[in-house]
Every structure is written in structure tokens, then in C-alpha cells.
């Protein structure tokens, strides 16, 4: 084991607690996600530090004409609407409830304001139901006890259209990716979609072994039209080659890695 590797050391720690063997831990999506979430916390800390150097209000005195990078540019991470739409686009309609629960309903985490003037309710089965989940600012249903007038729901009307990347955001996104990929039908939808794009009609429950062409197509589900560098392609291929599971499970790992990566959140 490479002790300098943070993921490997975390897996070993879980293993030594008797939770599972290292290899078993690697096969446990929850353990992997937990370790990766910790990794993201560290990575995001670095990003935040880098972003803070691009602050906009207290600018350091630079030499005019300094050819360095902009100090006023910020990373534009997409809001909850974009993330939800992309997840549904890739994984199909069955992913919608999960994307709504883990992303769309998290105004304060992902950004994207609600608008009280877009809200409307329908009376269905004796209960008042918000007509549009995407637009609602308030709680689940009409209730005298669940929502107070001073509730912070109103604050959601002014939520920024973008929010910085942080551990909480990564955590909710990883949770969404995991839950969606645990649905066989959502995996099937995505697999059939990227194979269709390269002219192959396959059964998403029993797809071919990942190869260079299909991995590139899967990559472009998340990164449309973007080049796939050799290192990433080899890593994705190794991910498929490293497990002795049915092909749809190999694809699950590849799609999970892609889903958890954060580049596709920055259009």
C-alpha cells in the first residue's frame, strides 16, 4: 500500500477497523465515496485558496501592466437547475426524483434562486401541492405548522445564481451520482445513450466491455465535444479492467467516476 496516497490510507483505516478488507472496501461504493469526499474536501480547500487569491474587493497592489493572470476572474460553477437538467439528460427520467432531492431542492448549496411569483399550487387529493418543484421557495405542502412567516425560505428568492465549490456541495452531488447509478434503469439509459451516439444499439443491461471508443463516448456524455486526454482515458480503462464484474457494473464505475468529477459543472 502506498501510505502517501490519501485514498489508499483511508481505505486501509476502514479495513483495520474490521469494516472490510481493502479490496472489499474498494468494491463498496459507499466507502469509496466517503474516501473520495474527503479527498474532495482537501482538493476544494486548495481551490478555495486559489480562488481567494482572485478576490475582487481587496485587490493587492500590482504593477500596472503586469502580464500575470487576471485577479478578477472567478470559477463559474453552474447552479442547481443546470446540474439537475444534465443529470436527467444523461440518466433519464428515473433519475429525476433523486436529482430533485439531492440537487434541485438545495438552493443554498448549489445556488439558483427561486421566485415567489412563479409559485402556484394545485389541490390534489385534499392537499395543496406546489405545481413546480423547481420554482418553489417553501416547504412540501400546505401546512399551518411546518412553515413560519419568518422562515428562511424567503431567503431562497435571493440565492445567488452561482455558489462556490465546497465539501457540502460535493457531498450532495456524490450522493446523487451514487443513488442514480444504483438504479439499473438509469445506468441502462446512459449506457444505451452513449453507445447510440457511436452508432451501436446495445442492451444497456448487458453492454460490451468498455473500449477506447465507447469510453470516449461515455466521457462526452459529461464533457460534450471536449477532448479526452490519454491519462484520463487510460485511468478509465483501468477502472474497467480492474474489477471482475459484469460489464454493466464496470460501466457503473466509469460513469460514477465521470459523474463525481467536477469539470462538467463548469460550462
Amino acid at each position: 500500500m502506498d501510505e502517501s496516497d490519501p485514498l489508499a490510507s483511508r481505505l486501509a483505516a476502514r479495513s483495520s477497523n474490521g469494516h472490510c478488507g481493502i479490496d472489499e472496501c474498494k468494491g463498496d461504493i459507499n466507502i469509496m465515496a466517503d474516501a473520495i469526499a474527503q479527498y474532495y474536501a482537501e482538493a476544494n480547500k486548495k481551490i478555495t485558496e486559489a480562488e481567494s487569491q482572485c478576490g475582487t474587493k481587496s485587490l493587492p497592489k500590482d504593477n500596472p501592466g503586469d502580464p500575470g493572470p487576471s485577479k478578477r476572474a472567478q470559477v463559474g460553477i453552474a447552479d442547481r437547475f443546470y446540474l439537475t437538467n444534465v443529470l436527467i439528460d444523461i440518466f433519464g427520467p428515473l433519475a429525476e426524483p433523486i436529482a430533485h432531492k439531492n440537487v434541485l431542492s438545495k438552493h443554498e448549496v448549489f445556488g439558483g434562486p427561486c421566485d415567489v411569483y412563479e409559485n402556484s399550487m394545485n389541490r390534489i387529493g385534499g392537499r395543496w401541492i406546489w405545481h413546480s418543484q423547481a420554482n418553489r421557495c417553501f416547504g412540501d405542502s400546505y401546512s399551518a405548522t411546518t412553515i413560519a412567516r419568518s422562515d428562511n425560505n424567503y431567503a431562497n428568492t435571493q440565492t445567488s445564481t452561482t455558489k462556490p465549490s465546497n465539501t457540502v456541495r460535493s457531498g450532495w452531488k456524490i450522493a446523487a451520482c451514487e443513488s442514480i447509478l444504483n438504479l439499473a434503469e438509469s445506468r441502462k439509459f446512459a449506457i444505451e445513450k452513449f453507445y447510440h451516439r457511436i452508432g451501436q444499439e446495445v442492451d444497456g443491461n448487458n453492454p460490451p466491455h468498455p473500449n477506447t471508443q465507447s469510453i470516449f463516448s461515455a466521457y462526452q456524455l459529461f464533457y460534450p465535444e471536449q477532448p479526452l486526454n490519454g491519462a484520463t482515458r487510460i485511468s478509465l480503462q483501468a477502472l474497467a479492467n480492474g474489477v471482475s464484474e459484469p460489464n454493466d457494473v464496470k460501466w457503473k464505475w466509469i460513469l460514477l467516476a465521470l459523474c463525481m468529477s467536477n469539470g462538467w459543472e463548469v460550462p
Partner: peptide, 15 residues
């Protein structure tokens, strides 16, 4: 392990 490498790679690519 590979997942970790991939996430590093994505960050690198993005920059």
C-alpha cells in the same frame, strides 16, 4: 485508486 487518479486528472485538465 483509479478513481482518485481520474479526479486528479480532471482537475489538471480543467486548469
Amino acid at each position: 485508486m483509479s478513481l482518485l487518479i481520474i479526479t486528479f486528472t480532471f482537475l489538471e485538465t480543467q486548469s
